[in-house]
């Protein structure tokens, strides 16, 4: 009875929202989108917001990857918030899984193939993760996936060596320093140009590694931060078993 009611309710909600979502102009020409309006200068523009991003994005931010331009520069403040969300998640998991004295339990060694393989792969995976976030402004990817890839390298170590433990202090110091970098870059922008998170470095030539101003800097910080946070989460989850 309860289950049937729940299913009926779910279907009802689905229908109600589906009726609204069919009205999304999916795959339409961008020129048909409504034009944006600037509430401060009180002017209506002659193009829509996505159109502006695609047309002027490269000039505004210096990044070739449009997604990065939006994520780190146009809406960098949201990204700062999302980084904080991840930081909170790792802190929350860490505080909930906190145990005063961890009891060491006997654990089985994993087999030799896994051990050798992970030893071999560890460096490459880290390198790949670093590549992803360093080239975030040029190619798809960026701080979040790069950090996740780095964390998955550590995950491999956890699987291969059951006794392996990343030092929590070091992890938290690296995530703190990365977070501080983000905030300090923002504050420097505030001091130099009067806008928080202002892209104050020269843009350089597009498609070069050293371009797009502060975007690579921020993405490296995000990558380090996400990597150490996800590793910390994995580490906390492992801690329960012992």
């Amino acid at each position: 009875m309860k289950k049937a009611l729940a299913i009926v309710l779910a279907i009802l909600i689905f229908i109600v929202f589906a009726l609204a979502f069919v009205k999304i102009p999916f795959g339409e020409k961008m020129s048909t989108y409504p034009h944006y309006y600037n509430p401060i200068t009180n002017q209506t523009s002659n193009m829509s917001l996505p159109q502006h991003y695609l047309t002027y994005g490269k000039n505004d931010t210096g990044a070739t990857n449009m997604v990065t331009a939006i994520v780190v520069d146009y809406r960098g403040f949201d990204t700062l918030g999302e980084v904080t969300v991840l930081f909170l998640a790792s802190t929350g998991v860490g505080s909930l899984m906190y145990v005063e004295n961890k009891v060491k339990k006997k654990v089985r060694r994993s087999n030799a193939v896994v051990e050798t393989g992970s030893k071999l792969l560890f460096g490459f995976i880290i390198l790949f993760g670093a590549y992803i976030f360093i080239h975030g402004h040029l190619t798809p990817g960026g701080g979040f996936p790069g950090g996740a890839v780095i964390a998955s390298a550590f995950l491999l170590l956890y699987l291969a060596y059951p006794k392996f433990h990343a030092k929590h202090e070091k992890l938290s110091v690296s995530e703190s320093i990365a977070g501080l970098t983000f905030v300090i870059v923002g504050l420097i922008g505030l001091i130099i140009a009067g806008y928080f998170l202002y892209n104050f470095l020269p843009f350089g030539l597009p498609t070069y590694l050293f371009s797009a101003g502060v975007i690579p800097l921020i993405y490296v910080a995000i990558g380090v931060k996400v990597g150490s946070e996800l590793t910390a989460i994995v580490d906390s989850m492992m801690g329960v078993r012992e």
Binding site: V67, T68, F144, P145, A148, V234
Partner: peptide, 16 residues
């Protein structure tokens, strides 16, 4: 971008 993130986080980390 989303595909890379989803693969790394959804398929690997959260499953682990």
């Amino acid at each position: 971008d989303v595909a890379i993130t989803e693969a790394a986080i959804g398929a690997a980390l959260s499953m682990a």
